[in-house]
C-alpha cells in the first residue's frame, strides 16, 4: 500500500515535470534551440493565474481565468519569438540558449515586482482536500493533475496527427527546407510552436499551483524537467512525458528508501546512467542519416 501511495504522488509530480519537459522538446524540435526559460514560463503561468483568480488581485472565476491565462501565456510565447528570437535568426545556437537563460532572469524579476517574493497559494477548486482509497490517501489536486495531463496528452496527440497546423509543425521540425518548398510559412509555424509551448507551461503552472504554494523561484524545477526530457530522449514528445513521470516517481521512492538528501540527486544520477548506456535517451526516435 505504501508503494502505491508513493507511486501515485510521484506520478502527480511527474506530470508537472513531464508537461514542462514537453515544452522543452516542442521548442527544440521546431527551432533546434533549448529554451531554458521553460520552467520560468511555468512559474509565470502560475502567477498569471493567481493574478487573475485570487481575491487580493483580480478575483475572476477560476474557469474563466483558465482560458484567459492560456491566451496570455500563448501570446507572450508568440511575441517573444517574433520580436526577439527572430532577430537572432541564423545566429549561433549558443546565442539563443543564452538569450533564453536571460529571459528566465527577466521573468523571475518581473514576477517578483508584480506579485512579490512570498509564496502564494492559488485559490483553485482543484485543491479541495483528500480522498481515501483504503489505506491510500490522495489529494484531489494530485488526481486532477494526473487526469488533466492524460487529457492534454490525448488532445496534443490529436492535434499533431489530425490538424493541418500540427502536421506542418511536424514537417517543419523534420525537414525545415522541404517545409519551405511545400509553401509552409515556417517562421509563423515556429511562432505557433512557441505559443503552444508557453500554453502547455501555463497548464503545468496551474496544476503546480493547485498542489501547493508557489514563489518566483518555482521555475527552477525546469532543470529537473530538462533532465527528464534528456532521460526520455530529447526530441521525442512521448519520451518527454515518460521522462517526467520517471523522474517524478523516482523522487518519493528515493526519499523513502535512501538516506536523507539522496532524493535531490536521484534524478540526476539516473540522468547520468541513461546518458552512459542509452545516450539518445530511453524513447528517442533515432534516425541515422543515410549517405
Amino acid at each position: 500500500m505504501e508503494i502505491l501511495q508513493l507511486l501515485l504522488s510521484g506520478l502527480a509530480n511527474g506530470c508537472v515535470y513531464g508537461l514542462i519537459a514537453l515544452g522543452f522538446v516542442l521548442i527544440y524540435k521546431a527551432t533546434e534551440a533549448v529554451n531554458f526559460a521553460q520552467g520560468d514560463f511555468m512559474m509565470l503561468g502560475a502567477f498569471v493565474m493567481i493574478g487573475l483568480v485570487n481575491p487580493q488581485f483580480m478575483g475572476l472565476s477560476f474557469w474563466l481565468a483558465v482560458p484567459l491565462a492560456l491566451l496570455i501565456m500563448g501570446a507572450l510565447g508568440y511575441l517573444f519569438d517574433i520580436t526577439i528570437l527572430r532577430q537572432l535568426f541564423g545566429q549561433n545556437q549558443i546565442a539563443i540558449v543564452i538569450l533564453t537563460i536571460a529571459l528566465g532572469f527577466v521573468i523571475r524579476f518581473v514576477a517578483g515586482v508584480i506579485w512579490g517574493h512570498e509564496p502564494l497559494n492559488l485559490h483553485s477548486p482543484l485543491a479541495l482536500g483528500d480522498v481515501r482509497f483504503g489505506e491510500v490517501v490522495l489529494s484531489l489536486a494530485d488526481i486532477a493533475v494526473i487526469v488533466v495531463t492524460v487529457i492534454l496528452t490525448m488532445l496534443l496527440w490529436q492535434f499533431f496527427q489530425r490538424t493541418k497546423l500540427g502536421l506542418a509543425m511536424q514537417a517543419a521540425s523534420q525537414n525545415q527546407m522541404a517545409a519551405y518548398y511545400m509553401g509552409i510559412p515556417v517562421k509563423r509555424v515556429q511562432g505557433a510552436v512557441w505559443a503552444l509551448a508557453a500554453a502547455v507551461a501555463c497548464i503545468a503552472g496551474i496544476l503546480y499551483a493547485s498542489k501547493g504554494a508557489v514563489d518566483v523561484s518555482a521555475g527552477f524545477i525546469g532543470i529537473k524537467a530538462f533532465a527528464a526530457a534528456v532521460i526520455g530522449g530529447f526530441g521525442s514528445l512521448p519520451g518527454a512525458l515518460m521522462g517526467g513521470l520517471i523522474v517524478g516517481v523516482i523522487e518519493p521512492f528515493a526519499s523513502r528508501y535512501l538516506p536523507p538528501g539522496y532524493s535531490q540527486i536521484a534524478p540526476y544520477a539516473l540522468l547520468i546512467i541513461v546518458l552512459v548506456f542509452r545516450p539518445h535517451g530511453l524513447f528517442a526516435q533515432v534516425r541515422t542519416k543515410k549517405v
Partner: peptide, 24 residues
C-alpha cells in the same frame, strides 16, 4: 513547386502525410 535535390522527404511522416503537406 520545387522538387528538391536529394529527395528531402519528411522522414518520420507517412507517405500519405507527406502528400498532404504537398497540398498545404
Amino acid at each position: 513547386v520545387q522538387v528538391p535535390e536529394g529527395r528531402e522527404v519528411f522522414p518520420l511522416l507517412t507517405v500519405d502525410e507527406n502528400l498532404s503537406l504537398g497540398a498545404y
